[in-house]
Design a protein around this nucleic acid. Structure first.
Lengths: 114, 114
DNA sequence: CAAGCATATCATCAAGTAGTGATGTGATGA
DNA sequence: TCATCACATCACTACTTGATGATATGCTTG
């Protein structure tokens, strides 16, 4: 049985996508597409709190989507791989076709709207 | 200000990725990569409950990742776009490089392990 | 039209997780 | 070495959401 290996691969893939699947993390990744940035710069650009960013960065770092490099007191982050940019780009392509459908997906969006 | 439009785009993209970001939905999508399937077949393949699958399919359908077609009493589902397969394929590529990092990301995985 | 099958919907519960504020840590420079 | 800056970590809260079981809907065949 390959079930264990298959489940592992499935979980890895889901985990990879989970890195992109939330607006805060996604805005961090989008900011890093252009250039490496330190945490303070990310705070400015994304307008998220420092601890919030730091928490997300820890996850993204652990998941291998970003890597960090110390420069003095600053920690610079960048995307680990060009293909991460490629995934974002391809998502945009799909969105340009499917946007209407995604836009109308309110299932997990406005649960208590009357 | 383009903030509203940017936020909308960001949310759309996050929502798109959210479709892939969970093992149950991902296993549904993986099953559909090969061929269109009805719900019963998906239940057999994924070993998830019928209502669980149906809930996820509703989300995937609303989000435009899958489309459905009635054939008699059966409802067949398929991926809406070849690029969805492309996204999955590219994710596999990234994983082949980043797998170690993703594998070690235990942040949201085993919170109460001693 | 009645019975049965395939699927959808809904309420509910439990687990996961994003955000916050407080605090810890390590580097820098006066 | 002490104050400060940049960032990380942690505990906690509130909200989100995946899974389940029960029920509803809709098609098909006898």
């Amino acid at each position: 049985m390959l079930l264990i290996a298959e489940n592992l691969e499935l979980e890895l893939k889901a985990k990879l996508f989970r890195g992109f699947a939330e607006t805060s993390r996604l805005s961090i990744l989008e900011a890093l597409r252009a250039q490496p940035l330190n945490v303070g710069e990310l705070v400015q650009i994304t307008e998220l709190s420092q601890s919030n960013i730091s928490n997300h960065l820890a996850c993204l770092r652990d998941c291998g989507l970003v890597t960090n490099e110390q420069r003095g007191r600053y920690t610079y982050y960048r995307l680990t791989d060009d293909r991460i940019d490629g995934l974002l780009r391809m998502a945009e392509e799909v969105l340009s076709d499917v946007a209407n459908g995604v836009y109308q997906c309110t299932r997990y969006e406005r649960p208590t709207e009357s």
